[in-house]
Amino acid sequence: MTDFLYFWNHFAFVILMVSGLFIIITSQNYIKKIVGLAIFQTSVFVFFVSLAKIIDGTAPILNSVNNVYSNPLPHVLILTAIVVGVATSALGLAIVLQIYKNYGSVEENEIKKEELKENS
């Protein structure tokens, strides 16, 4: 049972990642795709932070009480990655707004249909 608890984070990482991908591929709404992308990226954050944890450790802020600290390096990496993720979403949203302005829709299948019509 405890093994299962220990394993739960890794399992969640896989499930989150796959469901993010699943949302990106299957959903036709661009906003939802961006949300899917965010979920996909978040899975990695959870993975990294889980790697950093040490049992009985505390947050990596030096103190006199405890001498075991969780690993700070993944935290640093994830700080960067979070910001990068939000930047990507922001740019994506801006593009979606422009797409809406130009096409009058944010559903991928509708836009593709319109493109096909235009070409033929």
């Binding site: 965010a38 978040t42 954050f45 932070v49 889980s50 950093a52 944890k53 040490i54 450790g57 505390t58 947050a59 990596p60 802020i61 600290y69 969780s70 993944p74 935290h75 994830i78 700080l79 979070i82 910001v83 993720g85 939000v86 979403s89 922001a90």
Partner: peptide, 19 residues
Amino acid sequence: NLDAVDVAFTEAAVGSGIS
């Protein structure tokens, strides 16, 4: 919960707030 307080802070501010 996983001791990543700085990450949590950023996630709350940037991910949950700004995003």
